[in-house]
Amino acid sequence: MVTFTLNGQERTFDGDPDTPLLWVIRDFEKLTGTKYGCGVAQCGACTVHLDGMPRRACVTPISMIEGSDVVTIEGISGKEADAIKTAWAGLDVPQCGYCQSGQVMSAVALLQMVPKPTDADIDGAMAGNICRCATYHRIRAAIHNAANSMEG
C-alpha cells in the first residue's frame, strides 16, 4: 500500500507496486490531463510535479512515491501557473495539444526555479518535452511573456 497526496488530497494505491505513477494517475485516479507519449522518459508528455520538481510519471514506479506530494496539470496553481496558462492562451501555443500538459508543467517548474529565464535556461528546462507539432517557437515566446508578466 502506497500513500501519497495527489493535487492536495491523500490517496492510496494497493495494486502492483511497479505500476508507473502515470498509469495510477490515469487509470486509477481518472485524471487524464497527464499523457502517455513514450513510456521511457523521452518525450515529457507525462510530466508532473513530484515534491515540487518536474518528474516523468511514466518511469516513476508508484512504490517510489510513498509520502510524496504529486501535482498534475489539473491541480497546478499559483502565480507561475497562472502566468504560464495566460501566456499560452495569448499566443495560441497548442496545435494538437496532446503534449501541452507536459509542456505547461515543465514551464511552470522552470519559472518557479528561475523567474526570469534566458533562452539557454528554457532550452535546459524544456528540451525533455517533445512537441511533434513543433510549437517550440511559441513555447519559448510564451515563457518569456509569462516571466515578464510576473515582474513587479
Binding site: K30, T32, G33, K35, Y36, K85, W88, A89, V93
Partner: peptide, 19 residues
C-alpha cells in the same frame, strides 16, 4: 483559436482519455 483553453489546462479529451 477555439481549442486553446482546453489544450492548456489538461481538460481537452483525446481518445486515450475516454475511460
Amino acid at each position: 483559436k477555439l481549442d486553446t483553453h482546453g489544450k492548456t489546462n489538461g481538460t481537452a479529451i483525446f481518445t486515450l482519455d475516454i475511460t
